[in-house]
Design a protein around this nucleic acid. Structure first.
Lengths: 284, 284
DNA sequence: TTGCTCCTCACGTCACGTGAGGTGGC
DNA sequence: TTGCTCCTCACGTCACGTGAGGTGGC
């Protein structure tokens, strides 16, 4: 018979843990003195303690362990198998998350060393929802013509909406359909979120399209505040981040004009708050 | 200006989180209505929220993030670098732990599939402390002669202790010095823990040694309850576990007789509670 | 008026660590 | 008598989730 302190030393655990396990009915002392409350343990109980510590080391919760051990001396095979399989699935996620954190921290450190200062934008991953939109789409010959082209497309879009008596119901956005980053032959779509219910509507004006922008369960997103001229650099930063994470773009890049339409009265509104999103997948 | 619900949807976080960040002074609403307590946020604050979510995704605590963001709009480079380096070190540990958990779970599942039932012992890793001991050591020609040899060594050990007026101060143990598992030419030492202060003592009886058993920062340990005849299987289980973890033995195996001396009055005491320990290192 | 959103407590989660304040055994 | 160990609360940790109970705006 050991007092709690000796038993704790033998089992390499804290006294507090033994009291905790007692309260949870996970490991009751073989005898408790009724007057002093002193807990007494036997060597044989070390086996159970060892089992608890081992299972806990696999990341099982004390509740799960308690369920397993309640069923008697031998572990119930089926239950244990289920638990381990579930735990294995969890561990896969946790490992991926850790690896993402590691490459994220490494990427940031590298950036600090090379650029010497902290980057103006943060990238994070999230899910993006599908969006019902009205849009116009054009191919712009070169990047230099983008400002003028966008202004024209915005004008065209809102004029068409007016003619159709269609009201914007959300954010304005641009979608870049080119597979890779390019500065010529830019296939760009200017869109604005509309009510879901308007999608089926028949149109009278040409050039306007009503459609659903695909969502993605995994996308990289960068939030940017500044002028539109800085967007090129932001796009490159986003794509390079994606590469550093061992991922690749898996769909068109979206540019959400969170602080409102890019043009008001035909003039660019700057600085603006813009979110860049690109669906991604682990590169094979 | 957004109410908290809209801002939460925009930022893909919960309302509760925004209230939490408000309380921590991590992200205060740009305006709070004094009468209703309603919180109002601006689009520009999305950038800060995004930054918080991104840094939190690297596993930094909200406190650490708060410290970084308190220093103004730009992140303080030196402080960020320090934080990231520390986080990187932590992540290395966490990754190793995850990997150990993964191989641990896999090993158990494999065992369940192959053996069809749950194993009688658990293995876990821990540190083992150096121990001051008195001991006798012999080479035993074959495993079959072990019981008799051990009995003889125990008798010899305690007789010598008696003659030296040396009192055991702890557990009895056996140490197996052979590099690999073998069943012939077993180099075995029977020892008992003594007071640290007795180590320097001069001896009058031959065959007895006073020494310190080396400790190890990392060891695999298996706790076993049963007869001594089952020990061979337990040793094999321990060594095979070590191999499955991608590790290798890095020192002699110890066998601790936790439930007391193996022999009392020249007879084996069974069942016994025995801990097998072997120092290990990651295999290269 | 009816939903919908917002508010402030405040408890629950998980596995303990860490005192505070007091007692028992050698 | 002095340490040492033991005891029972009960708060702290971390980042929120989840009600309870009530209010404000359309």
């Amino acid at each position: 018979m050991f007092k709690i302190g000796d038993f704790a030393r033998l089992g390499q655990v804290s006294v507090r843990m033994l009291r905790h396990y007692d309260k949870l009915d996970l490991l009751k002392p073989s005898h408790t003195d009724p007057s002093s409350g002193y807990r007494y343990y036997t060597v044989e109980q070390l086996v159970r303690l060892h089992r608890i510590v081992a299972l806990n080391g696999l990341g099982l919760t004390l509740q799960q362990i308690a369920r397993l051990l309640r069923s008697g001396g031998d572990l119930p095979v089926e239950q244990l198998r289920d638990l381990l399989l579930r735990r294995q699935a969890e561990l896969e996620h946790e490992l991926l998350e850790k690896q993402a954190q590691i490459s994220g921290v490494a990427a940031r450190l590298q950036q600090l060393e090379h650029v010497g200062r902290t980057p103006p934008y943060e990238v994070l991953t999230k899910a993006v929802e599908p969006l019902p939109v009205a849009s116009v789409r054009t191919t712009v010959p070169s990047a230099g013509q983008m400002p003028a082209a966008c202004r024209a497309m915005c004008t065209q879009l809102y004029a068409a909406l007016e003619a159709e008596r269609l009201a914007p119901a959300g954010v304005e956005l641009a979608v870049y359909h080119n597979e890779d980053y390019t500065e010529t032959e830019l296939d760009v779509e200017i869109a604005v979120v509309i009510e879901q219910a308007q999608l089926g509507r028949a149109l009278r004006v040409g050039g306007l399209a009503l459609r659903t922008l695909e969502g993605s369960p995994l996308a990289a997103a960068l939030l940017y505040e500044g002028g539109y001229s800085g967007l090129g650099a932001a796009v490159l930063a986003l794509l390079s981040w994606v590469g550093q994470q061992g991922c690749a773009p898996a769909g068109p890049l979206r540019e959400l004009h969170l602080s409102g339409p890019a043009h008001v009265g035909g003039r660019l509104v700057e600085p603006a708050v813009i979110e860049l999103q690109v669906p991604i997948a682990r590169a094979s």
